Lab assay of single mutants.
Amino acid sequence: GQTTVQVRVPYRVVGLVVGPKGATIKRIQQQTHTYIVTPSRDKEPVFEVTGMPENVDRAREEIEMHI
């Protein structure tokens, strides 16, 4: 079944991970077949990644490449 993982990043890289108009996070979602919730600016900088476990792992690696 599907799993949801929280990926915490430093505040300063949230914009990098999301990309211009969300382009980068969309690409990560498409490439890894996951659904990613982006943290809002006034909340903790935690991305929520949902999908099959192996896909979630890949998405987390993609996010962490920006750190």
Rank of each mutant, 00 (worst) to 15 (best):
G1V: 10
Q2D: 11
Q2R: 11
Q2P: 11
Q2T: 12
Q2F: 14
Q2E: 13
Q2A: 08
Q2W: 09
Q2S: 09
Q2K: 15
T3L: 11
T4V: 07
T4M: 03
T4K: 08
V5Q: 09
V5L: 13
V5A: 09
V5I: 15
V5K: 11
V5T: 07
V5C: 07
Q6D: 04
Q6G: 11
Q6K: 15
Q6P: 09
V7C: 02
V7L: 06
V7Y: 03
V7A: 03
V7D: 05
V7I: 14
R8E: 06
R8P: 11
R8T: 11
R8A: 05
R8N: 00
R8S: 08
V9W: 02
V9L: 01
V9D: 01
P10R: 03
P10E: 00
P10Y: 00
P10Q: 02
P10H: 01
Y11G: 13
Y11I: 10
Y11M: 15
R12W: 12
R12V: 04
R12N: 15
R12T: 11
R12Y: 13
V13A: 13
V13M: 14
V13F: 14
V13S: 15
V13I: 08
V14I: 15
V14D: 06
V14M: 11
V14L: 11
V14Y: 06
V14K: 04
V14Q: 01
G15C: 05
G15H: 13
G15T: 03
G15S: 12
G15I: 01
G15W: 02
G15N: 10
G15P: 12
G15R: 10
L16W: 12
L16E: 12
L16F: 12
L16K: 11
L16Y: 10
V17A: 07
V17L: 08
V17C: 05
V17G: 05
V17P: 02
V17F: 03
V18P: 02
V18M: 12
V18E: 10
V18H: 07
V18D: 08
G19F: 01
G19Y: 11
G19N: 04
G19Q: 05
G19H: 03
P20K: 13
P20T: 07
P20N: 14
P20Q: 11
P20S: 08
K21R: 11
K21A: 11
K21G: 13
K21N: 12
G22Q: 11
G22S: 06
G22Y: 05
G22F: 03
G22L: 05
G22I: 00
G22T: 04
G22C: 03
A23R: 14
A23Q: 14
A23M: 13
A23S: 12
T24A: 06
T24Y: 05
T24R: 08
I25M: 05
I25E: 02
I25N: 04
K26D: 08
K26G: 02
K26S: 07
K26W: 03
R27E: 06
R27A: 08
R27C: 01
R27L: 04
R27D: 04
R27P: 01
R27W: 10
I28Q: 05
I28C: 01
I28F: 07
I28E: 00
I28G: 01
Q29W: 04
Q29K: 02
Q29L: 01
Q29E: 10
Q30R: 12
Q30Y: 04
Q30M: 08
Q30F: 02
Q30L: 06
Q31H: 14
Q31F: 07
T32C: 05
T32L: 03
T32H: 07
T32K: 01
H33C: 08
H33V: 06
H33P: 01
T34Y: 00
T34A: 01
T34C: 08
T34I: 01
Y35K: 15
Y35N: 14
Y35T: 15
I36R: 03
V37E: 08
V37P: 03
V37L: 09
V37A: 10
T38G: 14
T38E: 09
T38R: 08
T38V: 11
T38Q: 10
P39F: 10
P39M: 07
P39R: 10
S40N: 14
S40W: 10
S40K: 12
S40R: 13
S40L: 12
S40C: 09
S40Q: 13
S40P: 14
S40F: 09
S40A: 14
R41M: 11
R41N: 13
R41I: 11
R41W: 10
R41V: 12
R41L: 11
R41E: 13
R41C: 13
D42K: 12
D42M: 12
D42H: 11
D42W: 09
K43R: 12
K43P: 06
K43D: 15
K43W: 07
K43L: 05
K43V: 08
E44G: 07
P45G: 08
P45T: 07
P45F: 08
P45E: 08
P45S: 08
V46E: 02
V46K: 09
V46M: 09
V46P: 04
V46D: 02
F47E: 04
F47V: 02
F47M: 02
F47I: 01
F47S: 01
F47W: 08
E48W: 12
E48H: 11
E48K: 11
E48M: 13
E48L: 13
V49R: 02
V49G: 07
V49F: 01
V49P: 00
V49I: 15
T50M: 08
T50K: 06
T50G: 04
T50P: 00
T50S: 10
G51V: 03
G51K: 07
G51Y: 00
M52K: 12
M52H: 06
M52Q: 13
M52S: 14
M52R: 11
P53M: 08
P53I: 03
P53T: 08
P53S: 10
E54G: 11
E54W: 11
E54F: 01
E54V: 07
N55A: 12
N55P: 00
N55I: 04
V56N: 00
V56G: 02
V56R: 02
V56D: 03
V56W: 02
V56S: 07
V56A: 05
D57N: 14
D57S: 10
D57H: 07
D57T: 14
R58C: 09
R58F: 06
R58S: 05
R58L: 09
R58E: 05
A59I: 00
A59S: 01
A59C: 08
A59T: 00
A59H: 01
R60G: 05
R60F: 06
E61D: 13
E61A: 14
E61M: 11
E61G: 09
E61Q: 13
E62T: 06
E62K: 12
E62F: 11
E62C: 14
E62M: 15
I63N: 12
E64V: 04
E64G: 05
E64W: 11
E64A: 09
E64Y: 10
E64H: 10
M65Q: 15
M65L: 12
M65D: 10
M65R: 15
M65N: 14
H66K: 13
H66C: 14
I67W: 15
I67P: 02
I67F: 07
I67M: 04
I67R: 06
